[in-house]
Design a protein around this nucleic acid. Structure first.
Length: 319
DNA sequence: CGTGAGCGG
């Protein structure tokens, strides 16, 4: 988390012990109505830290809290986060000035965060047995009648580049997702032979991706999360054999402790480090990105890194 | 099994 002591350490060179008290204070707890101050930032570059997120968004106004969501054990970023401003005006200014901004290899999206509720859970669909000649437009036409598609992705064969008949479609609400399942699951698309399967996407890919990335990169940006100082529980996860299909546990041990437990990430390699494995293309924004807000400027996030502390930034009213 | 990352690990 990016808490006050991190700031003091950074700016004044102090080495404050990170207290448990500080860590617990840093959790986001909307005491009242944050619907006009609280923003969700999507499509963050993989290496972006809370400190960098803070540095980018504090240019607009005073930040109450700020957090990058990441895998608890490995610190691997999920690519989105939250910024809660003190003032509603500043939140709106942030949307108007930072949405669509190119940051490293991503165009971030800045919008109001919705209050947590069941309506916005399970909105991602996993679709199989699609025709092998499926196109983006066709997928869109199949699924957009049930709601606005927030994001979609047709999986392609790595070698041939041809669709594998598998895709993801994300809606804004689970009602839309359920409607799509009810209407489309088991149906046979025009010109196809087999019925498609449409179901809620289980989110177990997260942990796997984090596991694999942590393995490959050999570091973690979670510099000691709450209780996480030792990496995966019991040296578990990572140490046991490496990524699927590679069984290379010896490499891990050869490094004397290994990435996730060893702990001190090297996120300060300027601009998020260029060596993280990246997908061949940028994200496919399923609409919603605003062309009128695209900036051609490239944000330079402070050149310094250092993974944050245990869990977000919290404005303790020191200014 | 299944991506990249859209709602507080």
């Amino acid at each position: 988390m990016f808490i006050r002591s991190d700031l003091q350490k950074h700016f004044f060179g102090f080495n404050f012990p990170s207290t448990e008290k500080g860590a617990s204070m840093s959790n986001f707890k909307p005491d009242q109505d944050t619907s006009k101050t609280n923003l969700i930032i999507n499509y963050l570059p993989q290496g972006m830290t809370e400190k960098e997120l803070y540095a980018m968004f504090c240019t607009v106004g005073t930040i109450d809290s700020c957090k990058v969501m990441k895998d608890f054990k490995t610190g691997y970023s999920y690519g989105f986060g939250f910024v809660n401003y003190v003032s509603e005006d500043d939140a709106l200014k942030a949307i108007n000035s930072l949405n669509g901004l190119q940051v490293q290899n991503k165009q971030i999206k800045v919008s109001y965060a919705r209050p947590s509720s069941d309506e916005i859970k399970n909105t991602n669909l996993y679709i199989t047995n699609l025709p092998r000649d499926i196109t983006d437009d066709y997928l869109e036409s199949m699924f957009n009648q049930f709601g606005q598609i927030v994001q979609k992705n047709i999986l392609k064969d790595r070698a041939t580049g041809m669709p594998r008949g598998v895709a993801f479609v994300r809606y804004n609400t689970n009602k839309e997702a359920e409607d799509a399942i009810a209407a489309l699951n088991g149906t046979i698309p025009d010109g196809s032979m087999e019925p498609i399967q449409v179901k809620i996407a289980e989110e177990h890919g997260k942990q796997k991706a984090a596991y694999y990335a942590g393995w490959q990169a050999g570091f973690t940006q979670s510099r000691g999360g709450p209780g996480g100082r030792g990496g995966p529980r019991g040296g578990g996860g990572m140490a046991r054999g490496g990524p699927p299909g590679r069984g290379a546990g010896h490499m891990f041990r050869g490094r004397g402790g290994g990435p996730p437990g060893g702990g001190y990430g090297q996120m300060g390699m300027g601009g998020g480090g260029g060596y993280m494995p990246q997908p061949p293309h940028g994200n496919s924004m399923g609409g919603a990105m605003r062309p009128d807000r695209m900036h051609n400027s490239r944000f330079n996030p402070m050149g310094m890194g250092g993974g944050g502390g245990p869990g977000g930034y919290y404005n303790n009213n020191w200014n």
